[in-house]
Design a protein around this nucleic acid. Structure first.
Lengths: 327, 327
DNA sequence: TTGTAGGCGTTATCAA
DNA sequence: TTGATAACGCCTACAA
């Protein structure tokens, strides 16, 4: 392993000078700078990030903590975060919590022991018990945690858009599949759904059922909902995320129902898969790249110390899984 | 930030002693050990991984380099790797290469600057130009790279199983959608497909078409294949991975064809989605958890220095997308 | 403008 | 069995 010392010897300068050209310190003569640069090139020297980290008490690393990287939504977030981070020379730690607070604690502890520059987290708990070193900045995605920077879509507005879309299509018997009651996101989206309905007079109150943010929940509750007699079952179902929506479509297919002819379905998140299932899923899109961009930026850029919650606007992607109610 | 020094003061011992209890060094008296342990507890001390890394010239970190974390297959690999790593106190770096050799180089450079214990990589190039420090062990997944430990599924056997399944069902006009010719994996799977056919006498030679390992390729080539006149188009299509297979099913649906009645489809990988699409996809399953287990183990366990390629056996998951040829 | 030296938190070697 | 102390590779006052 070649060090700053080797470079110094090779260029016939002191290690201080090498360090300064590494830091682009302007106080070094162009002559020496050239010599050092060529030595660096010649020796294929890369500064030891560990040593830099120790010295600066801060490693060029960003921690990304998500409930489940297998969830396409988080995978995409990870892709964007990793892309932006590596562009500026940062590495990213990936940590899965499996939605388990105990695991989350441990993950954060080992992450913090690495002195990351910052941590981007989609938390499963309220984190209040964690001792955050002041040196590591954090960005919370999707959830509001007191004392931390927050970035997320406007969940309420998004769910409202979904519900309004269904209502505009003439649907009256709606159902909503929510996420776990312990999830702020689930509650916000549910609130959005409700707020849209409060403007209309519906002959029947919509069924609200909750579960997890996964395919299984969608399939199970969908099956339950759609197994009801014709005149009771919903003509449209909105869900708290795309996985659930796809599960619902799966259940509908298993029951011999056609989407959207027999049933309209709207999801949330716009995961890549949403545009690939049959029929293509109408859904509320999160501007994930923008979220990742802001998250990384606010970690790197220390000038940005305002703890204002940032809400980014969702957009409704109308595709094939929704249609106007017939007759 | 509390350090080993603080602990030493609090426990009225030297920092050497604290370091020794941290290392579970048996040469420390049980009395002092107890004092130190309680001080550690009391001060909520966690050793600084960066400092340890500098001293040991090796950080408790594993690098995971994949072409695209958005690919469910790699996402699942990441989940398993991360799970096993964090269980033993290791963190994992995630790096996306986008299948770009130049990006891969840069990613590896910044990764190596962090002195990881090892790197698990699904390479896009042959890596020969990279200078690997001897201190960081590597495991290559899916591809054989001279000089590196390799773990992968038996691609040839897997593709052969898929082809044989189709032949057993009576299909005669087969087509195969391959991956990029630059990919070893694609070539091995293609070879497996061919080897199965060589046993049978087919009235027509199967169409072999190549593209990328993604939905789009499957959809595009599928469309092309299925747009042919009835008596020319294939009755069964095998693909190089599940995304392509799902793309094919998408194309079939768009053309008004039913799977499996009008067309049988077999994928490869068994991504989570495979069992959720309609119809559920018949596919060749990779034992991903086992691959992850072996990869992590061979990085941590230095006794395991044999560079034997390890091939793990695939299994065929027969689901709903394949059926016997009618008439 | 350049060089020297102290220290970041830890481990490991050497005495005691 | 324990306590000093010298590195590990780098940055940054401080001197020159």
């Amino acid at each position: 392993m070649t060090t700053i010392k080797d470079v110094a010897q090779h260029a016939h300068v002191s290690i201080g000078t090498v360090s300064r050209v590494l830091a682009s310190n302007p106080t070094v003569s162009s002559e020496l700078r050239a010599r050092v640069l060529s030595s660096i090139e010649h020796l294929r020297f890369t500064p030891n990030a560990i040593a830099q980290g120790l010295r600066r008490n801060r490693n060029a690393v960003i921690g990304l903590v998500v409930p489940d990287i297998t969830n396409p939504f988080f995978a995409e977030l990870a892709k964007f975060v990793e892309g932006m981070a590596s562009q500026i020379g940062y590495s990213v730690f990936l940590a899965n919590t499996n939605d388990d607070p105990a695991v989350e604690r441990i993950q954060l502890d080992t992450l913090l022991s690495q002195s990351p520059t910052g941590i981007i987290i989609v938390p499963t708990t309220n984190l209040s018990t964690i001792a955050w070193p002041e040196t590591v900045s954090t960005v919370v995605v999707d959830r509001a945690i007191p004392g931390h920077q927050v970035i997320s879509v406007d969940h309420v507005a998004g769910a409202r858009m979904a519900a309004e879309h269904l209502l505009d299509l003439g649907h009256k018997r709606l159902a909503y599949i929510s996420g776990p009651a312990s999830s702020d996101v689930a509650m916000l989206r549910l609130e959005g759904f409700h707020s849209a309905l409060s403007f209309k007079n519906l002959s029947t109150t919509p069924a609200i059922l909750g579960g997890n943010f996964d395919y299984q929940t969608g399939e199970m509750i969908g099956n339950q909902l759609l197994s009801q007699p014709f005149h009771q079952r919903p003509t449209a179902i909105a869900t708290a995320n795309d996985q659930q929506a796809i599960g619902v479509m799966r259940a509908a297919a298993d029951l011999g129902m056609k989407v959207p002819a027999d049933l309209s379905v709207v999801g949330f998140d716009n995961i890549p898969l949403a545009s690939l299932v049959t029929p293509r899923l109408t859904t509320v899109a999160q501007p994930l790249e923008e979220i990742a961009r802001q998250a990384v930026a606010s970690i790197i850029d220390e000038s940005d110390i305002g703890h204002l919650p940032r809400r980014v606007a969702p957009t409704l992607k109308i595709r094939e899984s929704t249609t106007a109610l017939e007759g």
